[in-house]
C-alpha cells in the first residue's frame, strides 16, 4: 500500500448525501479482474450530465473529494476505492462514511477523513467560491487546513501507523503465525469444513 503522510490539493465539493457505491462505480464495471482502469467508471451516470461538478473544467486535477454525509453506503465493492484513486483522488472528506467503504479505503491508502458536518460544508463553500483553493490533509498532525479553516480529525492509532508507513496488513498478521496455529489447534471438531482433508 502507498503511504499517506500529507497531501495538498484542490477539491471537488460533492453536495449529495448517501452517495452509494453503485454511484461511485456502477456494477457493470465490476466485471474487470484488475485493480486499475476504473477511472472512466467513477460516477459514470452523473458524469453524463455536463453540469455535474466533476465535468467542470476548473475541477480538473482536483485530488480532494469533499462529500455529503453517509458516503460509500451499500455494496462492499473495493472497486469504489480503486475508481476514486484511479481518477486521481487522494483523500475523501465527509461527516460520515459507511463502515465497509471506510475499511476498504484505509487498506488502499485512500485517506477518508471524518469532520463535523459544519466544517465539511465550510470546505465545500470555500471550494465552490474559489475552485483554486487548496486543502491540506495532514495525517501526521491529524489536521485539515484550508484558508480560514483548521480542523483536527480522529483516526485510530493503528490505522494511522499503517497508513503513514504504507504497511501491508497480511505481512503484519503473518508475524502472528504461532497465535493462529494455536487457535486452530483448539477449534471444536463440530465446526463445519467445506472439504475433507
Amino acid at each position: 500500500m502507498e503511504a499517506f503522510t500529507k497531501h495538498t490539493g484542490r477539491a471537488v465539493p460533492l453536495r449529495r448525501s448517501n452517495v452509494d457505491t453503485d454511484q461511485i462505480i456502477p456494477a457493470h464495471w465490476l466485471k474487470k479482474v484488475t485493480r486499475d482502469g476504473f477511472e472512466d467508471g467513477l460516477f459514470e451516470a452523473w458524469r453524463k450530465d455536463e453540469t455535474f461538478i466533476l465535468n467542470q473544467p476548473e475541477r480538473k486535477g482536483a485530488t480532494v473529494l469533499v462529500a455529503g454525509p453517509d458516503f460509500g453506503t451499500g455494496s462492499s465493492r473495493e472497486h469504489a476505492v480503486w475508481a476514486l484513486q484511479n481518477y486521481g483522488f487522494k483523500t475523501v472528506i465527509s461527516s460520515r462514511f459507511a463502515d465497509i467503504f471506510r475499511g476498504n479505503s484505509l487498506k488502499n491508502g485512500l485517506l477518508t477523513v471524518v469532520l463535523d458536518q459544519k466544517i465539511v460544508e465550510a470546505l465545500q463553500e470555500l471550494s465552490e467560491n474559489d475552485p483554486q483553493a487548496e486543502i491540506t490533509v495532514d495525517l501526521e498532525a491529524r489536521e485539515v487546513r484550508a484558508e480560514g479553516i483548521t480542523a483536527s480529525f480522529e483516526l485510530d492509532e493503528n490505522s494511522r501507523w499503517r497508513l503513514l508507513n504504507g504497511l501491508d496488513d497480511i505481512s503484519i498478521t503473518l508475524q502472528n503465525e504461532a497465535d493462529i496455529a494455536a487457535y486452530e489447534a483448539k477449534r471444536p471438531s463440530f465446526k463445519p469444513r467445506t472439504l475433507e482433508v
Partner: peptide, 11 residues
C-alpha cells in the same frame, strides 16, 4: 472488501 478477501485467504 477485496483486500480483506486476500487477507482471509492468506491467513
Amino acid at each position: 472488501g477485496t483486500s480483506q478477501v486476500e487477507h482471509v485467504l492468506a491467513t
